[in-house]
């Protein structure tokens, strides 16, 4: 007589999404199942603010297409072509702050909004034109004078305050750990001085590569800063899958990218696990999924392909129960590339 014995152990009752073969190797990369369980589903009543590295531009676009209320403190004039608007930072995020690659950069912005005073030292020059050093790519042709930079920034800050106070959810896409900062003030910049405007001065500027403890500490400050504008504001974190254009770490750019993404991924996940009002969505994982066999990256293996963007956004919306009654997100090959200052470093590639 043969007696079968069923062994009970922690893996015996796990769902299919816990197993690589079923969940990854045998599942379409475009439609990963049960990859995320949101702590707080987004609804069409939520007022949503977005910010982040250039990949985050896709997030705002998809949310708007899905009919969600994405806040915009500095809306564009109507009837202007998308290319002109995007080149000047309109409609990319919930304000014209441009790409925010690090949590530290966003904390700085929140503090500046709270203070209501721009730092007059953060103006970069290029020829006879002047750029806001904290969003240098926003006006590609620059502004007429330092006074104009400050006046526009002062008003920018004043418009962000009510937007932040009205946001129910803040979606932030972490992009980089590497940054350049002012030695004197500690302010980090979205780009290295001298790339878009300004000039690099080793006596004034220094490289920083934020570590896991740095990022977790910054995320805590970020959550506190958001709650200072609106108590209870939820924070939804993602990590951009877009690799570094270049690293100043002294390492090969591939491990430098992996360090950056691994740090951000771990910090975001651990921080979300600590707070009921903070969640993490795996944009990064969906794009680098081996089941995609690389097709979620465009030529150049850096920008995410339209198919990859569609996979992320459709999964995100489905996860939040927002797929109904919305136009399908197609893998549009003509989809606008995101505006990305960091990509300008490519011009310095030998």
């Amino acid at each position: 007589m043969h007696i079968s014995v069923i062994m009970l152990h922690p893996y015996s009752d796990l769902p299919s999404n816990a197993f690589w073969r079923r969940a990854v190797a045998e599942t379409s990369a475009s439609a990963p199942e049960a990859i995320s369980r949101p702590k707080f589903p987004l609804t069409r009543k939520d007022r949503i603010a977005t910010a982040g590295s250039c990949f985050a531009q896709h997030m705002g676009r998809a949310l708007r297409a899905a009919g969600l209320k994405v806040l915009d403190a500095e809306p564009s004039p109507r009837g202007i072509g998308q290319a002109v608007l995007q080149q000047h930072g309109f409609g990319l995020y919930s304000g014209r702050y441009g790409n925010i690659y690090t949590a530290r950069q966003l904390i700085q912005l929140l503090q500046e909004v709270a203070d209501g005073r721009p730092d007059p030292a953060q103006i970069w020059r290029r020829g006879d034109r002047f750029h806001d050093a904290l969003r240098p790519g926003l006006d590609p042709e620059g502004l007429d004078s330092p006074e104009e930079v400050l006046a526009i920034r002062r008003q920018h800050l004043s418009r962000l305050a009510p937007m932040l106070a009205g946001a129910d959810v803040f979606i932030f896409t972490l992009g980089l750990t590497e940054a350049w900062r002012c030695r004197e003030t500690g302010r980090v910049y979205p780009t290295c001085p001298g790339v878009i405007a300004g000039s690099f001065d080793a006596a004034r500027h220094e490289f920083v590569n934020f570590t896991y403890p740095d990022v977790v500490e910054d995320l805590q400050k970020l959550r506190d800063g958001l709650h200072a504008f609106k108590p209870g504001m939820k924070l939804l974190l993602t990590v951009s899958p877009v690799p570094l254009t270049a690293t100043a770490s002294g390492n090969h750019v591939l491990p430098a990218t992996q360090y950056s993404k691994a740090t951000l991924r771990a910090a975001a996940g651990d921080f979300a696990a600590l707070h009921d009002d903070v969640d993490y969505f795996p944009s990064y994982e969906i794009v680098i999924n081996p089941a995609a066999r690389g097709r979620f990256f465009s030529d150049g293996l850096r920008q995410v392909s339209p198919e990859g963007v569609a996979a992320v956004m459709q999964t995100f919306l489905a996860t939040h129960g927002l797929s109904e009654n919305m136009p399908p997100l197609s893998a549009d090959p003509d989809m606008d590339d995101p505006i990305c200052e960091e990509a300008m470093l490519e011009a310095y590639s030998p």
Binding site: V84, H88, D144, A151, Q155
Partner: peptide
């Protein structure tokens, strides 16, 4: 932009942008 007469006169209701942004919008139109 800052050089609009209304802004020079103290009107703070408009969203301030660079003059070249407006020029780009006009050229695009």
């Amino acid at each position: 932009s800052l050089d609009f007469p209304s802004v020079v006169a103290g009107d703070e209701t408009a969203q301030l942008v660079g003059g070249r942004v407006l020029g780009a919008m006009l050229r695009g139109r």
